[in-house]
Nucleic acid binder design. Structure first.
Lengths: 209, 209
DNA sequence: GTCTATAGGTGGATAGAC
DNA sequence: GTCTATCCACCTATAGAC
């Protein structure tokens, strides 16, 4: 049996590259940046990932697998749809709390400048998210826990888009609360009983001015 | 009186640079790209915009002014809140139809790599949007044309985030309908009478599979 | 205002020793 | 697997002629 070790070099490279893309974008980081953070030369990086395109592709694939694992973990830990949706939104929020964008949201912005292999992998990531969400939404509607305004697939797409957008905006304001407020509003939309969300909050908002 | 002329060189430079950023991002274009498209040398570009940072700042400012003008035009052309919101969403949709992202949405993704002056200008753009939307939303609620689930300011932020996100995702799928569907769903959320959006559509969706 | 020419730096990537 | 050394393309920016 191989003894447990600190992360292998390729993993450390991917970790650093992921963080760099999530904060600076694919066109905003270089092998020199990774080299400095990992502590090996640029030439050594090319031994593990011959081209930037292959590094990027590995990154998206690993990210998608991690996301899938998180979704499976969510699905087994809870069963009611609203809780699952909150858990899903938390996946995004936890990135912002680590000062990062969603890797794929960031790459989506740079979409046109990416190698085709990465563009494909990106879509697969979003498709995967959409499928999982559509399943949760459909189940929630059947159980009466959710109330959809249209096809589950469309609602799922809207959810992904709104969460990515909220992440984008909150990130550029460096304000996690912006994301939390937006996520709450987005999910609120799907709950069957919708009175004014929090009467107190609105009264307070008026009193403040 | 100066005679009418085709756009002055600085304007042509800004036009090209805007399109480049909207498709490739701030870190994804260069003076060489502008040079090729405008037909003057890189050195001449530096005469009009000494640094890339100043070019970027001019761009965000001009974009904001154009957006403000579009919002003023909207405000005078219609008065009922739902129509104003549809008009607002159309401003985003029209960009996608020209194959572009929102300039400021794109820049928001690259936020951390931007010169501070551009970061500030970006926020001012989003603040401006939020203010205009909050006004429309509050007026719509008073008139009974809209039904908000929280403070108008929060709803406005959610709207901006959701539209930017929908633009981002639809762009990376190169599918305008994705944006249209998402925008419709987002606005639908604010209408007071919300039955299932389109009963026919949902029945069709089931029949298709 | 636009050009040629170039500086000085960084980009991704490779050769070959260890 | 990591290194030194290097390539060449491209980057932003400047100098100075016209």
């Amino acid at each position: 049996m191989p003894r447990p070790r600190s992360p292998e070099t390729p993993e450390r490279i991917l970790d650093v590259a992921e963080q760099l893309i999530q904060t600076r974008g694919y066109n905003g980081f270089s092998y020199a940046d990774i080299s400095a953070a990992v502590g090996i030369t640029k030439a050594s990086l090319h031994y593990h990932f011959p081209t930037k395109a292959k590094l990027g592709l590995s990154l998206v694939r690993r990210y998608r697998q991690a996301f899938e694992a998180a979704l499976r973990a969510l699905s087994t830990s809870r069963s009611d749809a609203p809780a699952l949706l909150r858990g899903y939104a938390d996946l995004y929020g936890s990135m912002l709390r680590r000062g990062r964008m969603c890797l794929c949201g960031m790459l989506a912005a740079e979409h046109r400048t990416l190698p085709v292999s990465m563009q494909r992998a990106l879509r697969e990531f979003f498709d995967e998210n959409e499928r999982w969400l559509a399943g949760v939404l459909a189940q929630g509607e059947r159980s009466g826990a959710l109330r959809l305004s249209g096809p589950a697939r469309d609602e799922a797409r809207l959810l992904v888009a709104a969460l990515e957008g909220a992440l984008l905006l909150a990130g550029s304001y460096d304000d996690v609360r912006r994301f939390d407020a937006a996520a709450a509003g987005i999910l609120d939309r799907l709950l069957p009983s919708r009175g004014p969300r929090r009467g107190l909050e609105r009264a307070t908002a008026r009193a403040v001015r």
